[in-house]
Amino acid sequence: MPNTTASTTPCSRKLADFPRLLRLIGLVLSLIAWPVHAQTPARIAYGEIQRENGDYVINADIDLNLNPRVEDAIRHGIAVYFLLDARIESPRWYWLDETVVSETLNYRVTYHALTRSFRLAIGSFHQSFDSLEAAVRTMTRVRRWRVAGVDELEPGQSYKVALRFRLDPDLLPRPFKVSALGSRDWSIDTDWMNWTFLSAGVSAE
Rank of each mutant, 00 (worst) to 15 (best):
M1N: 08
P2Y: 04
T4Y: 14
T4F: 08
A6I: 09
S7M: 06
T9Q: 00
C11V: 14
C11A: 14
S12N: 07
R13D: 09
R13W: 10
R13E: 15
R13A: 06
L15N: 00
L15G: 04
A16S: 10
A16G: 06
D17E: 14
L22F: 08
R23E: 14
I25R: 10
G26A: 10
L29R: 08
S30I: 10
I32H: 01
V36Y: 13
A38V: 01
Q39R: 15
T40K: 13
T40Y: 03
T40Q: 14
T40A: 08
R43V: 06
Y46W: 06
Y46C: 04
Y46A: 06
E48Q: 14
N53I: 01
D55G: 03
Y56T: 04
I58Y: 02
N59C: 07
D61W: 05
N65C: 08
P68M: 04
R69P: 00
R69N: 02
R69Y: 02
E71W: 00
D72G: 07
I74L: 09
I74Q: 02
I74N: 00
I78E: 06
I78M: 01
I78S: 02
V80R: 09
F82M: 06
L83Q: 10
L83W: 03
L83R: 09
L84M: 12
A86W: 02
I88L: 12
W93V: 15
Y94I: 05
Y94V: 00
Y94R: 09
L96Q: 07
E98L: 03
V100K: 13
V100Y: 02
V101T: 11
S102G: 00
E103C: 05
E103G: 04
T104I: 15
N106R: 14
R108D: 00
R108Y: 02
V109T: 04
T110K: 04
T110I: 05
H112V: 12
H112P: 00
A113P: 00
R116K: 15
F118R: 04
F118G: 07
R119P: 04
L120S: 01
F125C: 04
Q127I: 07
F129G: 08
S131G: 01
L132Y: 02
A134F: 00
V136D: 01
R137G: 01
R137K: 13
T138K: 15
R141S: 15
V142N: 01
R144A: 09
R146L: 03
V147G: 04
G149D: 11
G149P: 02
D151F: 07
D151A: 13
E152Y: 03
E152K: 13
L153W: 08
L153D: 05
P155A: 08
G156L: 04
Q157N: 11
Q157T: 13
Q157P: 00
K160D: 09
K160Q: 08
R166S: 13
L167R: 12
L167S: 05
L167N: 07
D168Q: 12
D170V: 09
L171I: 01
L171V: 08
L172C: 01
L172I: 01
R174A: 13
P175L: 01
F176D: 10
K177D: 10
V178L: 15
L181M: 11
G182S: 06
G182F: 14
G182N: 07
R184L: 11
D185P: 05
D189K: 15
W192F: 02
M193Y: 10
T196K: 09
S199L: 05
A200L: 14
G201S: 04
G201F: 05
G201E: 07
V202H: 02
S203E: 13
